[in-house]
Simulated assay, not measured.
Amino acid sequence: MSVSFSLKALVAASLLSIAGFAMSHGDVTPQEVDTGELPDLGKDALMVNPFREGNEHGDNYAEAINVGKSGYAGNCAVCHGIEAMSGGLTPDLRELTEWDDEYFIGRVMNGTERGMPSFRENLDQTAIWAIKTYIESVSPPQ
């Protein structure tokens, strides 16, 4: 009887854990991002962060970080953690060296099959690249 009870308890706990993980990412309500004085980057996805120093709009780097910090707090922090420091359920964005700019814009605009929502309809490209600029400005883990 105790083996059967233990097995049932283990199965129930496993199912609850899986359900909690699946639901933890799915109920994100995107928040509007005030892009302030940053230039409108249009609808066609850029494949390189234009706000990075040395790029086309690099002179807006500091402003992009400020806008991105606010945009990150309202749209990303709930899953990816404050200042991009994950609590373990989602990737620590400070450590994603394989996320080049093209990969990043694709993930954010299209979402993922593992639960990250698409932000294509809710965030314009200016806000998305500002968020990427902010993430790059956060110190990596020591």
Rank of each mutant, 00 (worst) to 15 (best):
A77I: 13
D27N: 10
D92N: 15
S4C: 09
K69P: 09
D101C: 13
A9G: 11
F5Q: 14
L15P: 01
C79Q: 05
E37F: 01
L93S: 07
K43Y: 05
G58S: 14
S6L: 15
K69C: 02
G20T: 09
G58N: 07
T90D: 10
Y134D: 05
P39W: 04
T35Q: 02
S6G: 07
S118A: 15
S86G: 12
V78T: 12
V138K: 06
G111P: 07
L123D: 00
L10C: 13
Q125R: 01
R114H: 09
A73K: 05
K132M: 14
C79S: 01
L7N: 01
A64Q: 07
L89Y: 01
M23V: 03
K69D: 13
M23C: 03
V3K: 11
V78A: 08
Q142M: 13
H80W: 06
L41Y: 06
Y134I: 05
M1Y: 05
G88D: 07
Y103H: 09
P30Y: 05
P141W: 12
A130I: 12
G87H: 08
N55T: 11
G26C: 05
L38V: 14
E98L: 13
P30A: 08
A84L: 06
M109N: 12
Y103N: 08
L16M: 10
D101P: 07
A9F: 13
N60S: 06
R120P: 01
Y134L: 01
N49H: 08
E37M: 03
I82G: 00
T126W: 05
E136K: 11
E95M: 10
L89F: 02
E37N: 12
C79G: 00
I128L: 01
S86Q: 11
P141E: 13
G87Y: 03
G106K: 11
F21V: 15
E83Q: 13
T35G: 00
E136H: 11
G54Y: 04
T112E: 07
D59I: 13
D40S: 13
S17M: 14
Q31G: 12
I18K: 02
M1L: 08
D92H: 07
G87P: 04
D124Y: 02
C76V: 11
N60Y: 15
T97S: 09
S137T: 08
A45T: 13
A45D: 10
S139F: 03
K8I: 14
S86A: 14
N75D: 03
S86V: 11
Y61V: 06
